[in-house]
Amino acid sequence: MDREISLVVDGASHAVTVDSRTTLLDTLRERLGNTSPKKGCDHGQCGSCTVLLDGRRHLTCLALAIAYDGSEVVTAAGLGADEPHLVQRAFLEHDGYQCGYCTPGQVCSAVGMLAEAKQGHPSHVTEDLDAAVELDDAELRERMSGNLCRCGAYPGILAAVRRAARG
């Protein structure tokens, strides 16, 4: 079943006709030519397809495009459209990657994660659920655990996210 949907991607409006089975990831990459979100596992396990969907970090491989008709997507490319985003500058500064394939997902995830922390969302390692969130290394590791890096550049990623968390 084909249906026309509208999406705002990195600030630009698009109308695109998709088959009902098409994921948001394939729509972005194959139909709209935005190859910033990456297809890693395609099963929700690696985080490389992460974007900001209606303002929150979200996988695009487990999302059917038709279910998100009218949504707003910001990819890592959109975050750095004018000049590199704070999080992107931190990844550059701290060498938060090796091959770079997981990086757009890491960047979007970090931006979404910092916003969640700002709203006071606790995590699995937060000791006092009622206290204000303090993003120490254990918190950052846990909160970023949905993004895998098969090069193992985690020390650099952690340093970058730590830097970005300082603002």
Binding site: T50, G112, M113, T126, R143, M144, G146, N147
Partner: peptide, 29 residues
């Protein structure tokens, strides 16, 4: 649900269980 103030203070088992599952992205979905 995990971040809701009443859940955190009255039903920590719910917040703890949710936060022990999946990833940040999947919990948003």
């Amino acid at each position: 649900l995990a971040a809701h103030p009443v859940v955190r203070s009255r039903f920590p088992v719910v917040a703890r269980a949710l936060l022990a599952g999946a990833s940040g992205q999947i919990r948003n979905q």
